[in-house]
Structures are given as C-alpha cells and as structure tokens.
Design a protein around this nucleic acid. Sequence first.
DNA 1: GTCTATACCTAGATAGAC
DNA 2: GTCTATCTAGGTATAGAC
Lengths: 206, 206
Amino acid sequence: MAYRKTPAEIRRLESAREHLVARATEVVAEVGWSQASVTAVADAAGIAAGSVYQHFASKAALAVEVFRRAAEHEVDVLGSVLHGPGSPAERLAAGVGVFARRALENRGLAYALLAAPAEPAVGAERLAFRRIYRTLFAEVIEEGMAQGALPPQNGEVTAAALTGAVGEVLVAPLGAPEEDGTDELLAELTAMALRCAGAAPSSTRP
Amino acid sequence: MAYRKTPAEIRRLESAREHLVARATEVVAEVGWSQASVTAVADAAGIAAGSVYQHFASKAALAVEVFRRAAEHEVDVLGSVLHGPGSPAERLAAGVGVFARRALENRGLAYALLAAPAEPAVGAERLAFRRIYRTLFAEVIEEGMAQGALPPQNGEVTAAALTGAVGEVLVAPLGAPEEDGTDELLAELTAMALRCAGAAPSSTRP
DNA sequence: GTCTATACCTAGATAGAC
DNA sequence: GTCTATCTAGGTATAGAC
C-alpha cells in the first residue's frame, strides 16, 4: 500500500457502509429478513449487488450488523429507563411501557427484531439480546426484592417471563396494520408486568 | 384414548404416510426444521427423496403436518387440564405445570414447536397455535374474574403474556442439554403464572 | 471502486426406468 | 409404487471489464 487512506476517503467509505446499513434496515423492516435478499438490499441502497461485498464479507455479516445496531439502541433505551429514577416497580412499569410504545411506533422493525423468521446468524443475535433483556429485568427485580417491595421469587425466571410476555403481547398488534387501543394496551401491559413481578398495582385496586 | 384400535386404524398407523410423518417428527426434534431437508427425512424413513412426494405435495405440506400433529396433542392436553376440576387459579397453575413438564421431557420437539427457526408455512402454524393457547388461557382468566377470584384485567393481554412467558422461560432450559432444577423451575414458573394473572398466593401486599 | 455478468451451490421438485 | 437421475429456481458470492 503506497498510500494511506485520507480522512476524506475513510469518511466516504464509512458513509457508504452506513448508508447501506440504513437502507438494509429499512428493507428488513418492510419485508422481513427472508425477503431481504442481497439484490433487494443493494437495489434499495442504489448500488449493485456485487458492491455489497465491498463492505461486508457475507450477507449474514450485514444482517447481523443491521440487527445489532437496532437492538442495541433498544437495549440502551430500556436500560436507561430501568436504571433511572423511581422505585423498582415504577422503573419496571416505565421500562415496559417505553419498550412497547417504541415497538408500536416502529412496527416493522420491531417485528423483525422480535419475531420475524431469520437466518441462523440473526437468530443467534436475537437470543443474545433476549439474554440482555433478561439481565436488565432481573436486576430491577432483585433490587425490588432486596428492598422488600417485591415478594420472594426467582428473579431470572420472572425476568425471562417478562421478556417473553412483552414480546408475545406485542406480536399480535405488530402484525395488524393498525390498532386503536394503543393506550389501553400499554396500560394493560404495564399492569400485567407489575403483577408478574408481584407488585400489586397500588392505586387501581377496587 | 380409551378405545381399541380398529383394523382400519392399525392400517392407517402403519401406512407409509404415517410412518413418514413419525420419522419426520423425530428428525425435526433432533436437528430442527432448517436441517430437516427432504433427503434427510426420506433417509430417516427409509425411502427415497422422490417418494416423499407420493404422500405430500410439497415439503411445506409435510412440515405443516408434522407441526400440526404434535401441536394439536399439546393443545388437547393443556385444554383438558384447564377445563378440568379445580378453581380457575388451580387449573391455570396445573396447566402451566403440565405444559412445562411435557416440554422438558421432550425437549427437542418442544423447542421445534416453540422456537426453532422454521420456514414460513410452519411459522404461520405456530402463530395459529399460539392464538389457541391464548384463547385457552383467556377462558380461564375470564372465568376467574367472573368469580371474583382474579382481579379485573384484560384477559386477552394476560393470556398472551402467559403464552409468551411460559415459552420464553422454557426456551433457555430447552436449549441446555440437561438441567437439574426442574422441580424448582416448575414451581417458579407456576408461581409466576399465578402472579401474572393476579392470583397472588398469600404473598405480601405493600 | 463500482458495475455486469456469471459461476456455483443448495434444496425442492420432476421424469422415466424398473 | 419406489428408486435413480436430473432439472430447476433462487440466491450468494466472484471475476473481470470499465
């Protein structure tokens, strides 16, 4: 290599890569993983199919990158709410609510991240991120138990249950094109999450 | 199941088609849907790949049949427990417990039914069966609410949550080759299910 | 560096012999 | 009715021209 890459060159290369990832994310959100072929993604990005391989060694690598970017963002958001102010129960309810609202506002992507059929590499990422969600929930639950605000329970089991419960409750609305009762759904979902963790809804008990 | 097999049924059970479905189920339980190619299934059944198409119009049709047989059995078992004797909460706990125990006793098949990556036709079946689970759970929850044994809640949301929660809690153990704390897991799972439905077993209320 | 064209692989499905 | 051999389609990845 006679020449080093100039900063401008690096920027341009990375921007092309970023552009590709961004468009690929859109395609996945629209048509799902199984329909997001290399040619479809390349078309959406305005490049030739072969050019994809200038940026990623394989289609799986691109898919993993797409998944990871989007999922990491959701983890960050959920984590910041769960680690934010308030009692453990309040944070749990807020976290579930925020997660669900974000999913319902970006249904295609949420469905792709949560449930859409995907190649093995993406499936492995999905599993890894579900473990992260479990860990985040488990921390809050353990904290609540330590404070006596939550009854004795296996925090890992409850955390896994919450992860699955939130996903399953969201999958049906995500599949439907539009849904009216978003607010009611969120209220029911957060109430369910609190019950699941053993935190009785303080105010709304008749 | 207390009936005697008729000669016709014996013939049916021994027919090549049944044999094929049974062996295909084993293959799927062992290696998952994605590795269960037509040739692999045909090999397991001791027939040629081409002969599969004497019994099923497509690979997807065979896969759907495999899924449906196994899933219907689980639905029947769960339904009979949920519609059996006992209070709604007792039946809910018993149903979750039976479902989980059966899954842990037949991990490969349970994983295939619950979570393993699968072709779209199987994914659609999976969705349909999750709707059935939701309906079964929802009936019990509505009944419990009508009796005043369960607090007011959206039964459909709780039912979906239970469906997802049970599946997610089981997926990790199903993936692991062996697990010791089966009994503790079942106890925690049923306790979680009761909390989720608002049937707190004499737990501390803040 | 990007495009065009193509090689290649996998896996489902089919045809014709026995 | 079943097997062997083959066809085909879809999609990933590569080669070589520009």
